[in-house]
Design a protein around this nucleic acid. Structure first.
Lengths: 131, 131
DNA sequence: TGGATATTACTACCGGAGTAGAAGGAGCGT
DNA sequence: ACGCTCCTTCTACTCCGGTAGTAATATCCA
């Protein structure tokens, strides 16, 4: 059973950067966050990464003077556990309720709707195969 | 614009009790939480409710000796904002990704799948109407 | 009326997220 | 060799969620 990995806001933002680039220095992460509107001191990012390493969420190796950080949690794993956790806490696990709120809370392009239908069809297929 | 209402774990659990009963005393809330496995001291629940009142999440009126608390946030409102907030933080707002993880992370009955299809059809309809 | 009981009010504490300054080391250009 | 810049390390502080004890107060019952 995959352990439940909950990440707080900034931690998640940092992870997203690491996931995107596979690995990154403190400066890299900081710049990426800056580009999305989060102005943080260099040391703030460094401190966070150190704390996250202590918890096993990331690792680093030294390369020259700087540290290069890599994620230790998969995006899939984190996403899945955070999503299902929220679904549980909010709706007692009723997925349709969750999806319903998701749809209501956001504008959807026709393209996205098409993709959603495809997802469901695939899921139905799996369902059929399983029995 | 409905403001984004984020609730932490215990706060949400308390809210769920209030939503279910419309209103409740501290003892009521405590008992409900106890019934779902959270053993908390009476004063813990009271403190939490007081803190939540300071933030405008609940109100109370005195009736006899005890306070009766009522929620000040709608379940819809909170659900929607928490779900869309997570979708943003996790997938940059890509709803299909979110749904995808939701589907992968849980077993779905044929019934649920049917309901999901209905949801999407309804959404397509809205989309069409809107333009 | 007086004591037991239920309820609120106040205060305190812990841990974790988030934030950042100050200090110290390493490398580089000139 | 010197100073500048980039980097890590250490330390500290604030805020909030969660948790609960103790004190004060109201209520009810015998």
């Amino acid at each position: 059973m995959g352990k439940s990995a909950q990440l707080a806001a900034l931690q998640l933002a940092i992870m997203r950067v690491l996931w995107e680039r596979s690995e990154a220095t403190v400066a890299d992460v900081r710049e990426a966050l800056l580009a999305e509107g989060r102005e943080l001191a260099y040391t703030t990012v460094a401190t966070m990464l150190a704390k996250m390493e202590r918890k096993g969420q990331v690792t680093h190796r030294a390369e020259g003077k700087a540290f290069i950080y890599r994620p230790m949690l998969g995006q899939e794993q984190v996403s899945r556990s955070m999503v299902t956790d929220l679904a549980t806490r909010l709706f007692g696990g009723d997925v349709t309720l969750m999806v319903s709120h998701l749809l209501d809370g956001s504008e959807l392009s026709r393209d996205e709707l098409t993709r959603l239908k495809a997802l469901i069809r695939r899921k139905e297929q799996e369902e059929r195969d399983a029995r």
